[in-house]
């Protein structure tokens, strides 16, 4: 084995990659993974945990659950290539189910409220507002 110390300029000239830029993501997730994730804006940073695309490229792991949203654009193609499908059809937490249900009910009530207001039916509008308030309270308790 031959060991050579190269300065920045020489290493570029000789085509030696920057070792810190070594893409573990490629190794763990398949060639092209590191490139794929860069499809989003390159300077993007997760607002929740501060993770960057460079971090993902290095580790092949994400920083927190919110990263899935932050890096959604780049992750989309990656997940598609990696898995059987692109949407989860298995188990879900009951909490998530109730949240979805509450969201649906909330949307319906708001639509009804808009209609009631448009029809100048203020009595039922007031009743609907009360219901929405109760639902909002229920939602905040669950969190």
């Amino acid at each position: 084995m031959q060991k050579v110390n190269l300065c920045d300029a020489c290493s570029k000239e000789k085509g030696v990659q920057d070792p810190t830029g070594f893409a573990l993501a490629d190794l763990l997730l398949g060639i092209g993974a590191a490139e794929e994730i860069e499809k989003g804006a390159p300077s993007q940073r997760c607002p929740v945990c501060g993770f960057t695309q460079a971090d993902f490229k290095k580790s092949g792991r994400l920083g927190c659950s919110a990263c899935y949203e932050t890096f959604a654009e780049g992750l989309g193609g990656l997940l598609k290539a990696m898995h059987k499908g692109t949407e989860h059809i298995g188990k879900f937490p009951q909490r998530a189910y109730r949240e979805m249900e509450l969201g649906d009910r909330m949307r319906a009530l708001n639509e009804d409220l808009e209609k009631a207001v448009a029809a100048e039916n203020y009595e039922s509008a007031a009743a609907l507002r009360d219901q929405i308030k109760r639902l909002e309270h229920e939602k905040s308790v669950q969190r």
């Binding site: 997730l29 659950s65 879900f92």
Partner: peptide, 17 residues
């Protein structure tokens, strides 16, 4: 948990179930 992606994991290879 995400309604579309399922359980969210550190490595994208485990996401979903």
């Amino acid at each position: 948990y995400d309604p579309r992606l399922g359980y969210l994991t550190a490595c994208p290879t485990n996401v979903g179930t």
